[in-house]
Measured scan of single mutants.
Amino acid sequence: TKVFYNGTYVEFNNPEKAKKYAEKVAKKVGGTFTEKNGQFHVE
């Protein structure tokens, strides 16, 4: 499961961990995250 952010991504074996990371990054940058095709995108 990949989490895309700012033109790069971090890959996780565990979708649950990926979601938590996406939430954390989104919170940090004051943005939101969306799930597309089983991957997370932070905006």
Results as ranks from 00 to 15, higher is better:
Thr1Val: 13
Thr1Asp: 02
Thr1Phe: 14
Thr1Arg: 05
Thr1Ile: 13
Lys2Trp: 06
Lys2Arg: 11
Lys2Val: 07
Val3Cys: 05
Val3Pro: 01
Val3His: 01
Val3Ala: 01
Phe4Gln: 04
Phe4Pro: 01
Phe4Asn: 04
Phe4Tyr: 13
Tyr5Ser: 02
Tyr5Lys: 00
Tyr5Met: 07
Tyr5Val: 09
Tyr5His: 09
Tyr5Gly: 02
Tyr5Pro: 02
Asn6His: 12
Asn6Asp: 11
Asn6Pro: 01
Gly7Asn: 09
Thr8Tyr: 14
Thr8Gly: 12
Thr8Asp: 09
Thr8Trp: 14
Thr8His: 13
Tyr9Ala: 08
Tyr9Val: 13
Tyr9Phe: 12
Val10Phe: 09
Val10Glu: 06
Val10Lys: 12
Val10Met: 10
Val10Leu: 10
Val10Ala: 07
Val10Gln: 08
Val10Ser: 06
Val10Ile: 12
Val10His: 08
Val10Pro: 00
Glu11Asn: 08
Glu11Pro: 04
Glu11Phe: 08
Phe12Gln: 00
Phe12Lys: 00
Phe12Ile: 03
Phe12His: 02
Asn13Asp: 15
Asn13His: 10
Asn13Met: 12
Asn13Glu: 15
Asn14Pro: 01
Asn14His: 08
Asn14Met: 06
Pro15Trp: 15
Pro15Val: 13
Pro15Leu: 12
Glu16Pro: 02
Glu16Val: 10
Glu16Gly: 09
Lys17Tyr: 12
Lys17Gln: 15
Lys17His: 13
Ala18Phe: 00
Ala18Arg: 00
Ala18Tyr: 00
Ala18His: 01
Ala18Lys: 02
Ala18Pro: 00
Ala18Thr: 01
Ala18Gln: 00
Ala18Asp: 02
Lys19Arg: 14
Lys19Pro: 03
Lys19Ile: 07
Lys19Asn: 04
Lys19Ser: 05
Lys19Cys: 12
Lys19Thr: 03
Lys20His: 11
Lys20Pro: 00
Lys20Ser: 11
Lys20Ile: 13
Tyr21Thr: 03
Tyr21Asp: 04
Ala22Lys: 00
Ala22Phe: 02
Ala22Tyr: 03
Ala22Pro: 03
Ala22Met: 03
Ala22Arg: 00
Ala22Glu: 03
Glu23Gln: 11
Glu23Trp: 04
Glu23Asp: 08
Glu23Thr: 06
Glu23Gly: 05
Glu23Ala: 10
Glu23Ser: 07
Glu23Lys: 09
Lys24Ala: 15
Lys24Thr: 13
Lys24Pro: 02
Lys24Gly: 11
Lys24Tyr: 15
Lys24Cys: 15
Lys24His: 13
Lys24Val: 12
Val25Arg: 03
Val25Trp: 11
Val25Thr: 07
Ala26Ile: 04
Ala26Leu: 02
Ala26Met: 03
Ala26Asn: 01
Ala26Cys: 12
Lys27Asp: 08
Lys27Gly: 07
Lys27Val: 09
Lys27Glu: 11
Lys28His: 14
Lys28Ile: 14
Val29Pro: 01
Gly30Leu: 06
Gly30Phe: 05
Gly30Arg: 08
Gly30Val: 02
Gly30Cys: 14
Gly31Trp: 01
Gly31His: 06
Gly31Ala: 08
Gly31Ser: 07
Gly31Met: 07
Gly31Gln: 04
Thr32His: 12
Thr32Cys: 13
Thr32Val: 12
Thr32Leu: 08
Thr32Asn: 09
Phe33Lys: 03
Phe33His: 04
Phe33Met: 13
Phe33Val: 15
Phe33Ile: 15
Phe33Gln: 04
Phe33Pro: 05
Thr34Tyr: 15
Glu35Thr: 05
Glu35His: 05
Glu35Cys: 14
Glu35Val: 09
Glu35Tyr: 09
Lys36Cys: 15
Lys36Met: 12
Asn37Ile: 04
Asn37Glu: 11
Asn37Asp: 14
Asn37Ser: 07
Asn37Pro: 02
Asn37Lys: 07
Asn37Met: 08
Gly38Ile: 00
Gly38Tyr: 03
Gly38Asp: 05
Gly38Thr: 02
Gln39Arg: 04
Gln39Trp: 08
Gln39Asp: 15
Gln39Ala: 13
Gln39Lys: 04
Gln39Pro: 00
Gln39Gly: 10
Gln39His: 15
Phe40Thr: 01
Phe40Ser: 00
Phe40Trp: 13
Phe40Gln: 01
Phe40Asp: 01
Phe40Gly: 00
Phe40Ala: 01
Phe40Pro: 01
His41Phe: 15
His41Ala: 06
His41Thr: 09
His41Met: 10
His41Pro: 01
Val42His: 02
Val42Gln: 01
Val42Asp: 01
Val42Ile: 13
Val42Ser: 00
Val42Lys: 01
Glu43Cys: 15
Glu43Val: 14
Glu43Thr: 13
Glu43Pro: 03
Glu43Ile: 15
